Amino acid sequence: MSKRTEKTIVDIAEELKLSVSTVSRALNDNPNISARTKEKVKKMARKLGYRPNALAAGLRNNKSKTIGLIVPRISMFFPAAISTIIQNKLQEHGYNLIICQSNDSYEQEVALVNTLYSARVDGLVVSTTLYTTDFSHFDVFKDNHIPLVFFDRVPKDYNVKVIKGDDYLGGHTATSHLIGKGCRDIVHISGPLSCNLYLERVAGYKSALQQNRLPFKKSRVFYHELTRDNAWATCEKIFAQRPYPDGIFASNDTTAITIMQYCRRIGLRVPEDLKIVGYSNDPRTEIVTPPVTSVDQYPAMMGERVVAALIELITSKQTTTPRYSQEIIPIQLIARESTASAVPAGKKK
């Protein structure tokens, strides 16, 4: 079977007995070409199966009209929600999006950065892996003045534009909410401290305890990737012996929901015996029983601000070394039944 030959504007020109330049201008809706000629050219292009060569056009114009996006895992609620917003907003500005996932592998992240640079993207948006502490692989974008924006999981000491949630306030608010509901022995389940998110949420947790004159106990904080399996294993440690905690602040909703499942298994009542707060306001938190209190990170707002910052960098055509700048997206605690106050005896809900 013979290999299919790609049709070019030269083929269209030969079929219509027009110049290549006329065909090119017609395909690009040049106002100097008549509507009748444009229609003839586009009709022939469809007939021949002509496909524009975006890469070649990008090389000529030094613009690919494509943005690269690297997220840890597209299966997680927060990155998935932001990716959708970023794609939709970029399309409004005439840009396409290439979405890549690092799977929380530093080596994979490095490879993806090099691949997207080779693909001549006009900008790069990144939420880093849990373990990224060396950001030198992004230097190729900075050195060549290609716009670079980090969001959510971000560097602290790297001269780039950063857009992140208020994770310190999130940790403080979640813990204070549990304290306000009467909890005095609060466990915190955190991600690895190599990631900015969890450093700040732990700091917020500690601060809330301190402000309420409650002791910080190292034995009441657990650090690991926030998967269901890890959460289940941590529950086995927490509830292996008494006294049980009366509150748990989990740094993601997958962990919070897993804790509820574990409590159901061992006959512990939520919220009567244990109150739980999650993080991210994953839609699942509303449909489980009981619904889970969670911290909303406003992914739509963050996604919109990421695109706004990127477009600003692209249009400004900055040729100097970028400086560190940070934008903080607010958080809001969404209170649900997993932290509801106990109903006094003899009273109905």
Score class of each variant (00 low, 15 high):
residue 203 A to T: 01
residue 117 Y to C: 13
residue 309 A to M: 09
residue 195 C to H: 06
residue 314 I to E: 00
residue 63 K to C: 01
residue 319 T to P: 01
residue 114 N to P: 00
residue 52 P to C: 01
residue 67 I to S: 08
residue 213 R to L: 13
residue 69 L to V: 09
residue 103 N to C: 06
residue 218 K to W: 06
residue 314 I to L: 07
residue 11 D to P: 00
residue 345 A to S: 15
residue 345 A to N: 15
residue 20 V to F: 15
residue 343 V to A: 05
residue 194 S to L: 04
residue 325 S to Y: 07
residue 11 D to Y: 12
residue 170 G to V: 01
residue 127 S to W: 02
residue 63 K to Y: 02
residue 295 V to R: 01
residue 78 F to V: 07
residue 3 K to S: 12
residue 182 G to I: 09
residue 123 G to S: 15
residue 61 N to P: 00
residue 63 K to S: 07
residue 27 L to Q: 09
residue 299 P to S: 08
residue 117 Y to S: 12
residue 40 K to Y: 08
residue 29 D to E: 09
residue 97 L to K: 06
residue 105 S to C: 12
residue 253 D to S: 03
residue 101 Q to F: 02
residue 6 E to H: 11
residue 21 S to T: 15
residue 245 P to R: 06
residue 185 D to R: 15
residue 57 A to W: 02
residue 98 I to F: 10
residue 183 C to A: 13
residue 315 T to S: 09
residue 304 E to Y: 02
residue 143 D to C: 03
residue 166 D to T: 00
residue 183 C to R: 11
residue 150 F to I: 04
residue 206 K to I: 10
residue 209 L to M: 09
residue 324 Y to W: 04
residue 190 S to K: 03
residue 142 K to T: 09
residue 177 H to S: 09
residue 33 I to V: 14
residue 223 Y to W: 07
residue 125 V to L: 08
residue 247 G to K: 05
residue 234 T to F: 08
residue 255 T to I: 02
residue 141 F to D: 10
residue 159 N to E: 14
residue 349 K to A: 14
residue 239 F to V: 14
residue 112 L to C: 06
residue 84 T to I: 15
residue 182 G to E: 13
residue 272 E to I: 06
residue 330 P to H: 03
residue 300 A to W: 00
residue 52 P to N: 10
residue 105 S to K: 15
residue 72 P to T: 03
residue 258 T to W: 03
residue 248 I to F: 04
residue 111 A to N: 13
residue 205 Y to C: 02
residue 224 H to V: 08
residue 27 L to W: 08
residue 257 I to K: 07
residue 139 D to I: 05
residue 131 Y to N: 08
residue 209 L to H: 13
residue 104 D to F: 10
residue 40 K to I: 12
residue 122 D to M: 11
residue 164 K to D: 05
residue 213 R to A: 13
residue 53 N to V: 06
residue 218 K to I: 08
residue 165 G to N: 14
residue 215 P to S: 15
residue 29 D to K: 10
residue 180 G to M: 08
residue 160 V to L: 03
residue 90 L to A: 11
residue 255 T to H: 04
residue 62 N to V: 02
residue 150 F to W: 06
residue 56 A to Y: 10
residue 79 P to W: 04
residue 222 F to L: 10
residue 2 S to V: 13
residue 264 R to A: 12
residue 35 A to S: 14
residue 346 G to W: 07
residue 300 A to C: 12
residue 300 A to Y: 00
residue 148 L to C: 07
residue 251 S to C: 04
residue 234 T to I: 15
residue 319 T to N: 04
residue 342 A to C: 03
residue 180 G to Q: 11
residue 344 P to S: 06
residue 173 T to V: 06
residue 105 S to G: 11
residue 160 V to S: 12
residue 21 S to Y: 02
residue 237 K to S: 14
residue 94 G to N: 09
residue 19 S to K: 15
residue 268 L to N: 04
residue 308 A to W: 02
residue 179 I to M: 10
residue 223 Y to N: 13
residue 166 D to S: 00
residue 126 V to P: 11
residue 142 K to W: 02
residue 306 V to R: 08
residue 255 T to G: 01
residue 130 L to N: 14
residue 115 T to G: 04
residue 77 F to W: 10
residue 303 G to L: 11
residue 120 R to A: 12
residue 81 A to L: 05
residue 72 P to Q: 13
residue 247 G to Y: 06
residue 99 I to Y: 00
